[in-house]
Amino acid sequence: MTEAIMAHPALRHPFEKTSINDTGATVLASGKTIKLAQSLVDGNLWVTPEDLTRINGFELKPQGACYQELCIPIKEDSELLRQVSEQRWFNLTAFADLLEQPYVADTENRIWSFAQAPAKRSDMMADAMAPDFELTDRQGKVVRMSDFKGKKALIITWSSW
């Protein structure tokens, strides 16, 4: 065995402590950090339809909650969707349970972290279609797999550790 490669020293210094949630809640999903200005928490996390789309791309339509070709039927006034005053609320955690999408919640700090939804990866598992992703490159440009149709792409990972 050759000599051990040590971690970069910067990794061992703790990051400066900063506030997590002054108000609202935080959702971690699809590589993104989404701050919610409003939410309801009653053991489940309820979000607005607009935030649902920001979080996982699903949109509420008459036929249900839809992402591309996939639509999950949703009834009004159900355990997934309800109206309080003028605001509609979508039960994000119950929806994840329905999709068998795992998540981990830190309710004390009001943070919910969602894994990939298996349903959104069915194309890759069935037909070898590359999954879409959305990340920002070092120049600040948004990079999506779907941007590269018509080109060959090598997707490569590496790390310093």
């Binding site: 894994a115 990340l135 070092r138 590269f148 060959k152």
Partner: peptide, 28 residues
């Protein structure tokens, strides 16, 4: 891309780092 949350490994179900995938012109 500085992928602090290992998103690429996650969406492609990679076992380890470094790893790669080749994607053709049709997205396959």
């Amino acid at each position: 891309i500085v992928d602090t949350n290992h998103t690429i490994s996650s969406v492609f179900n990679f076992l380890n780092v470094p790893c790669a995938a080749w994607v053709d012109e049709t997205g396959k």
